[in-house]
Design a protein around this nucleic acid. Structure first.
Lengths: 193, 193
DNA sequence: GTCTATAACTCGATAGAC
DNA sequence: GTCTATCGAGTTATAGAC
């Protein structure tokens, strides 16, 4: 780690700004100002704005993998899934201000018909596969994937509404309900319904 | 109705483009081309781009009120709520391509710190109040508002994930689950849990 | 006089040369 | 790292058409 390189600092600030202001609304000047370097210096590190976006997505993919790996140390699959659900609580302040970084970027790139849309969706896929894996460990078979996707959707919905209404109590209430849902799908995994 | 005025045609095309490409990514040239008028002609009808956004939001608010009014003719409150849920099916093609028009606009304006953010969120409030009203008609009291917000969140989550994965089967599956949820909250409104 | 088109202006963006 | 080219954005000014 020691000192971050200029490239790393650019990626870090671009990551923040793409989240908080959106990809389209963030200019080179914004990133340069945030990093504290001149505009021209950019082209030593990145060919274009799309190139920075690509690096930011790679960075987020890596960060997500690291986070999921850390959660693997949790004793039970249920506790691991709870770690995922509780991101909503942990990051509630930023979520109320800017929504979910994954959902909002994917949505924006879809509207822009940007080539990087699929790469951004890969972050979702990381979560989906990891969650499906945990549900399988809880005894679920074919429904592990649907359960994973359902849970992703639930948390995305909470993020959108929390941001629209700036409603912290809503987040708490929804997280509690999702935890009840998780209980129901942890304890009787073999029942159909 | 007869012939739409130029102003109406501008609003209509701007509405479409703001939905499909996003507010920030839609230029005057794009709207002008879509309408088939010159750029300069705009300013006889609208003071600025923000002025068009305001008109588009007003237009969406009016369209939402009209839609909710139409649903009021449905016999039961439960059927009315089902009409809401089934927007996800009716509009699935556009939702998979561009997400929910209300959710995506609100999210974008929040990131832009745009003054119109609150007005855009009013569309959500229309739905929330209308849904709460229906839940009250189903016998719910203090939990009518939370139920309405929960349902809004569920549908937003479906829209985000359907757009990220372009997954039509996911929409069908989630709508079916939400309908089961509605059943549970229609038949035993007095039970706690 | 209301509506529309052309053209020009200003600003800030990406991009690249030195 | 500065400095500049180029492009497109929003906007305004002006002049023509119905």
């Amino acid at each position: 780690m020691s000192q971050p390189t200029t490239r790393e600092r650019i990626e870090e600030k671009a990551d923040e700004l793409f989240y908080e202001a959106g990809f389209g609304a963030t200019s080179f000047a914004d990133i340069a100002d945030a990093v504290g370097i001149s505009r021209g210096n950019f082209y030593h590190h990145f060919k274009s704005k799309d190139d920075i976006l690509d690096a930011v997505i790679s960075r987020r993919l890596a960060a997500t993998r690291r986070m999921l790996d850390e959660w693997e140390v949790d004793a039970t699959p249920k506790e691991r899934i709870l770690s995922f659900i509780r991101i909503l609580i942990t990051n509630r302040t930023k979520i109320m201000a800017f929504g979910c970084p994954v959902g909002t970027l994917t949505t924006e790139l879809a509207k822009l018909e940007h080539v990087a849309e699929d790469r951004a969706a890969e972050i979702f896929e990381l979560f989906r596969e990891w969650l499906a894996c945990q549900f399988r460990a809880l005894g679920h078979g074919d429904d592990a994937e649907p359960l994973a996707l359902h849970l992703l959707g639930r948390s995305q919905g909470v993020a959108v509404m929390a941001s629209a209404f700036k409603d912290e109590a809503f987040i708490s209430s929804e997280v509690a309900q999702i935890e009840v849902w998780l209980d129901q799908h942890s304890n009787q995994p073999q029942t159909k319904g």
